Computed example of a mutant assay.
Amino acid sequence: MISTLFSIIFVYVFILLGYLAKRIFKDDMNTKTLTLMSVYFLQPFVTVWGFSTARLHEEHFFVPLIYLAIILALLLPTILIGRLIFSDIKKRAIFSIAGFVGNTGNIGIPLGIALFGEQSVIFTTLINIANVFVVYGLGVYIYSRGSFGIRQSLFNIVKIPIIPASLIAILMNINNIRFTPEIEEFFKMGAYAGIVLQLFLLGTFLQGIRIREL
């Protein structure tokens, strides 16, 4: 019990470090640069490594389906509320996305590891991928429609590398294509770097939140 508690605390230490870094260095701590590094370079490592930790079976796919059902149940109310609260299309889009997506990558994967060990990674990765397809598919489309046309919005979805990386990783898992130990360790290093960066980023974002402004 004590070891589990410490494992959870250590996860939040990385969030605290991000919070302190942004508070101390302010604009010198560029969250946009860190986000680009995470989304375009390290998140594909998290996905590919996650799918290499265990062989997928039919029962695994019920996990993302349940998650998607919850997302769909939240989608319509958030869109309707967004239309009532905001007249600005971009603000409405941001509100709609925030209302039905979960923090499955930033917190879900590291907390799963802290609580249940690396055997949980295949489940948290599946939930995260379901979330990724919603956020980077429907979410990016909704947000882009606040600024771009349909064609550019669809192109913004294709540009994000975690989606093709996820499809390749799932196909490799289903066809039982295994990495050599050296390559698996390489992806594991990248995955843990991505997980830590996501926690750090979450801390930097939390530092910018002002309750009174909200």
Rank of each mutant, 00 (worst) to 15 (best):
I2W: 01
H57D: 15
L34T: 09
M37C: 13
Q119C: 13
M29H: 06
V101N: 11
F116P: 04
I174K: 11
A98V: 11
P110S: 04
I79C: 11
T35I: 01
I162A: 13
Y12R: 06
E185V: 01
N176M: 09
G194E: 02
I168T: 06
F200G: 05
T125H: 02
R151V: 11
F179M: 10
L154E: 04
P161R: 12
Q152N: 13
A165C: 08
P164F: 13
K22H: 12
V13I: 13
I70M: 12
I15W: 00
I109G: 01
R55F: 11
L111T: 04
L16Q: 00
V140H: 12
P164Y: 14
K32P: 05
I160V: 13
N106F: 14
R178S: 14
F200S: 07
Q152K: 15
A54S: 15
A73G: 14
G105Y: 02
I71W: 12
G105S: 09
F45Q: 03
F95G: 05
Y143A: 15
G102E: 08
P164Q: 14
N131S: 13
H60M: 10
Y67S: 13
F10M: 07
T180P: 08
G105L: 03
M189I: 09
F100P: 02
L34N: 08
T180K: 15
Q207E: 13
V140N: 12
L5E: 00
M37W: 12
F6M: 10
I9N: 00
V46P: 04
K188M: 06
S38I: 06
V135D: 06
F10V: 08
F14W: 10
V132N: 12
K26S: 02
G99K: 09
R92C: 04
L74S: 09
F205M: 09
A54Y: 05
F51W: 11
P64R: 09
I163T: 03
L171T: 11
G149M: 02
F205D: 00
I168C: 05
V101T: 14
N175T: 14
Q198I: 07
V39P: 05
I66F: 10
I9S: 02
S120W: 02
V46Q: 00
M189S: 04
E59W: 12
I160G: 03
N173D: 01
L138I: 15
I162K: 01
L72D: 03
S96F: 03
V196F: 11
Y192H: 07
L72Y: 12
L16E: 00
A69F: 13
I9H: 00
G105A: 06
L42C: 03
F95I: 01
G99F: 07
L5C: 00
P164K: 14
L5Y: 01
I81Y: 01
R92M: 14
S7G: 00
I24K: 08
N106H: 12
T78I: 04
I163L: 13
R92Q: 15
A191D: 03
V63R: 02
E213A: 11
F179L: 13
S153Q: 05
L202Q: 10
L74R: 10
L84G: 14
M37H: 11
A130N: 09
G139W: 07
I211H: 02
F179R: 06
L76S: 12
R178K: 14
V13Y: 01
A73Q: 12
P77L: 10
N176R: 07
P64T: 11
F10W: 06
H57I: 14
S87V: 09
L167R: 06
F123G: 04
G82N: 04
A130E: 03
I195K: 01
F205H: 10
I127A: 09
